[in-house]
Every structure is written in structure tokens, then in C-alpha cells.
Design a binder for these strands. Structure first.
Lengths: 229, 229
DNA sequence: ACCCCGTTGTGACCCAAGTCACAAATTGGT
DNA sequence: ACCAATTTGTGACTTGGGTCACAACGGGGT
């Protein structure tokens, strides 16, 4: 049981009727996670719903020693329970990248909400539809863009989401290691290193261990938009 | 308005209450399409819902002269209207490969069904969830499997869906050109040719212009399952 | 019977990006 | 302050598969 006020921070719940919001607030539990915690794994039975308040999470698939990150949800996004409607297993895993605070609703309670509140079911449908579109975009990018272009896209996206204007550029926290950037764009760590080096040599970005400063967002964006293959 | 009986052939509608089925049957119109007709394009406003009775369709994304096929829905599958819940634009295009017979429901009527019949909305949610899972699998395959493995998978899948046992193997119609196989697995036509040639030289398949005969389904399946990269 | 156009067959060549094998730098834990 | 574990830096080498350029084939239409 949480205070109803924080639901306005959650896209899934923000537009719903007061009655529905109250029902959600009654079922939700606020939970804090340390970085590196697996919220759920691919192949698990339907997981609880996690509505993210603060912190960052990665959604990903794994195979042996390789990993493909599917999405990096941020505050206000909701994850989990993707396979509840079909009763199958979770198609991907979720792990915290930073400390994370989330509102959690068990599958049982979630099912009750879906069954009893049509406007909640509709909002949940919108959520899944939105994610469907994200994945189609991901397939598009993997199919039509090369590694350089995809890496540029990721940098631009991160700059737009959490960048702060700084002397002659946009600054944001590192958050991901080279390996994780590689996992996002589906390539090898060394390739990320070489590509970032090229970006730095061309004066597009400056990277320190903790921060990334985008010096020329426009050029980077145009690299990210070309579909070279 | 169509006869309610054929709804049992449509996964989306088969399990629904008689009342809901009647409502669907009232709104649906049966339509026939020639091969090569675009049912809807990527970027279009939400399209009508198409419930496929006979024939085959491809869902795909395009960029310049390249094309990535996302799925090959068959009889009983429903496509279209993926972006109705969010009111965005269609994330992909759909074109008929063969002659196609489908039940079509306009977006307006579909919205009414979704709003008034909770069990229909639930079924629609299951549909979208199912497709979400398909796309995650597609990303997985693009990320972790090489072209040879992906082509083997496609052949196995097609054999399982519409193969008929034949002397020492499984036979099915060609349906796709080399170029379209290339679009399915995200590669170039020449690569498809070379890979198929290798499969033939190894005695795994025999291809004629109109048919494909799988001679060694087990080996092909094991090639399709290895995640080499 | 002929022509056009889409599909298939095939070699030569090329390059983005994956792999390997290290060294060096950080960082976190005790 | 020190050590182990992680992350980063970098060159050398390999390769899957993309590109190009044609020839040949086949099928449908008139």
C-alpha cells in the first residue's frame, strides 16, 4: 500500500480514474533494489509488474557469454508481467543498473486489476503496444544500420533523456561500460572502443570514466540517422 | 456481416463467448485480395484488423531498396490495428504473398468492440503479447545466430507449418523467392543462394522452382538451433 | 513463337566487424 | 594501503557475408 500521489509519476497509471488509481495504490508495494539485482529472468513464469520511480534497469536476452540489451527503461516506465496475458514465460530478463526504487504489484493482484478495471486493462494494452513498437524499431536498426550509426543513436538518445547542458555541449553520466554499450548495439567491446575513439578524434564527444560530453549533437544525430546498409 | 461459424478458425476469436462472437461476426466483412496487394503500410494511421482465413501475408519494414520481413502470418492469425491502442502509426507494412481471404473489421468498429467487450479486449491483449514475444525472438535470432542457422530455422519452420510427408522427406511449396528468403533472415540474395546450395550439396534439401523437399529435417533443425555467434 | 522481366546461378573482390592476446588503468573491498 | 577484479586501451589477424557484374533460365502475356 503506497500513497496515491506518486502514481502520477508512472506513465501507466497517470491518466487513470481516481478509483482505479486507488485500487493500484492499495495493491502496490514500494521496493528498493541494489545495482546488479535480477528483477526477473528470461524463461521465468510471469513476473510481478515493476513501475520504476528512480534508477535504471536493463531488459535483455542472453545466450552463453553474449548478451543483447533490448531496452533501457527509465523513471515512469513499467516493466515485467509481459507474459501474464498469454500465461507463457518471460521473453527477456531485467536487471538493475543502478540503485532502483519501484512500485511492485504481484501477478495475482495484477490479474485482479486487469479483470476488474477495464480502463486499467486498456492502459496495460497501451503499455504492451508501446513496447511492441520499440522492439520493431530495434529490429529495424539491427537490420538497416551499421554499428557506428547505432552507437551514435544510443548516445543521442541518452543525451536527450538525461543530458544537462554544459560548456559547449551536453553532459550525462556514463552509466554503461563499453561492454554494456556493446550489448546494446549488438557488437563486441573492442568495436565500441574503436568507434568511440573515432568519435573523440573527430571532436564529436569527450569521454571520461564517469561522464560523457556530447560536443556536436547535430553531427552525431545525422550519423545516427543514416541507414547505410 | 459474416457467418459466426468461421470465427472458430480464427485464434483471436475462437475462445470467446457466443455473445462476443456474434458481435464480431456482425462487424466483420469478408474480403479477397490478389497476391502482391498492400494491406497497409508502415507509417499509416491504425489499420483495420485482418483475420486471415486462407493465403499468406508478409509483415515487413522497408528502407530504400532493402526490406526486413518481420513475420509470415498464416491462417487463423490476425494482423493489423497494432497501433490502435496508442493511436500512433503502424510500425510495419503488410502485403499479400498469395491470394488471401480475410475477415476485416474497421478501426471504428474494432474500437467499439474493445471498449464494450472486456473479453475481446483481453483476447486482443493476448494477440499483441504473442506478437511481442515473436519479435523478441526475432531480435534474439538476429543477434545470436548466423545466416546459415537462420535460414535453416526458416526452412524447418515452414516444413513444420505446411509440410506434407513425401518419399523420404517433407515437401512444401516454394512460396518465397530467394530474395524474400533473404529479406526474412536479413541478408543478401546471393548469400541465400550459396547457403541453399550448400544445403543441397550436403543432401539436406532438394529445391525445385516450385517446391522444397526437406530430406534431413533433424540435421537441419540442429543447424537451426546452434547459436554460433 | 517471341519478347520482356523477374528469378536464379556463379565467380571475384572487398570490408566491416569479430577474435585474440595482451598491457595498463581503475575501482572496490578488507 | 594493497590486492583482486573489472574496465579500458590497442595492435594484428581472420572471416562472414555484402557487393558487383554478368550469364542463363523460365514463364506469362500478346
Amino acid at each position: 500500500m503506497v500513497s496515491g500521489a506518486i502514481l502520477s509519476d508512472i506513465k501507466l497509471a497517470a491518466e487513470l480514474s481516481p478509483r482505479t488509481q486507488r485500487a493500484i495504490a492499495e495493491k502496490a508495494v514500494q521496493v528498493d533494489y541494489m545495482p546488479g539485482i535480477e528483477l526477473y529472468q528470461q524463461g521465468d513464469p510471469p513476473s510481478p509488474l515493476h513501475m520504476l520511480l528512480t534508477g535504471r534497469v536493463k531488459l535483455y536476452r542472453q545466450s552463453r557469454d553474449r548478451c543483447q540489451i533490448l531496452a533501457l527503461p527509465a523513471n515512469g516506465d513499467s516493466i515485467g508481467a509481459e507474459s501474464l496475458p498469454t500465461g507463457g514465460t518471460s521473453p527477456y530478463a531485467a536487471t538493475t543498473l543502478t540503485q532502483v526504487r519501484a512500485l511492485v504489484i504481484s501477478t495475482v493482484d495484477l490479474q485482479v486489476l486487469l479483470d476488474e478495471l477495464p480502463d486499467f486493462q486498456e492502459a496495460f494494452l497501451r503499455l504492451i503496444t508501446e513496447r511492441l513498437k520499440q522492439f520493431v524499431t530495434l529490429v529495424h536498426d539491427l537490420a538497416f544500420r551499421d554499428v557506428t550509426s547505432r552507437l551514435a543513436m544510443v548516445l543521442v538518445a541518452r543525451a536527450e533523456v538525461e543530458g544537462r547542458p554544459q560548456d559547449g555541449g551536453v553532459l550525462f553520466d556514463r552509466l554503461l561500460s563499453q561492454q554494456e554499450y556493446a550489448d546494446v548495439v549488438g557488437t563486441a567491446r573492442e568495436v565500441v572502443y574503436r568507434t568511440f575513439k573515432r568519435f573523440e578524434d573527430d571532436g564529436l564527444v569527450s569521454m571520461t570514466r564517469r561522464h560523457i560530453l556530447i560536443r556536436d549533437l547535430d553531427t552525431l544525430r545525422s550519423i545516427g540517422q543514416q541507414e547505410s546498409r
